[in-house]
């Protein structure tokens, strides 16, 4: 399984990731991707920008471990994850792309990777709003979502 993990400040190009995951392969029947964008309303209205902090080294290892866990649960041919860090305006901040011979594995693995990423990968989000800056709190709903894969 091909794993392509990137943590970067720069904007990402989903087409470039698609090309990296599919180049010279004829065994891929499905590609599913998720892109996470910044909403203008989160815990408070008027989110103007956000700052993503990570733990260099540990974050990349954690993302790779999540990709490998997905590969152990579904027959995948590739997993690509790009997560942006630093101060970002309202752009896409995360991309998860999964390829497989069949669509069901790709859909489920993509969902699984996002749930794990939100609860296990060392990233911290600070929102800059019209009424001040604050660190985003963890959400029970994210843990509930991630918990679905433990019961399954």
């Amino acid at each position: 399984m091909q794993i392509d993990i990137r943590v970067q400040q720069a904007a990402f190009d989903a087409v470039a990731m698609q090309q990296r995951l599919t180049a010279r392969r004829r065994d891929i029947g499905a590609l599913v991707s998720f892109t996470g964008l910044v909403r203008d309303i989160n815990e408070r209205p008027d989110v103007e920008a956000l700052t993503l902090e990570h733990f260099p080294g540990m974050t990349e290892q954690a993302l790779e471990a999540i990709a490998r866990d997905a590969g152990a649960r579904w027959p995948l041919t590739g997993v690509g994850v790009v997560h942006r860090v630093g101060r970002l305006p309202g752009d896409p901040i995360v991309l998860v792309m999964v390829t497989s011979a069949h669509r069901r594995a790709a859909f489920e693995a993509c969902d699984f990777i996002m749930d794990r990423l939100k609860t296990r990968a060392p990233f911290w989000k600070k929102e800059h709003t019209a009424s001040g800056d604050y660190w985003v709190s963890e959400r029970q709903s994210d843990h509930d979502d991630a918990g679905r894969w433990e019961r399954a």
């Binding site: 540990m58 995360v94 990423l117 939100k118 060392p122 990233f123 660190w135 963890e138």
Partner: peptide, 10 residues
């Protein structure tokens, strides 16, 4: 050793 709050990426 590193200490940090619960993660909130994605």
């Amino acid at each position: 050793v590193a200490f940090f709050p619960p993660v909130t990426g994605g």
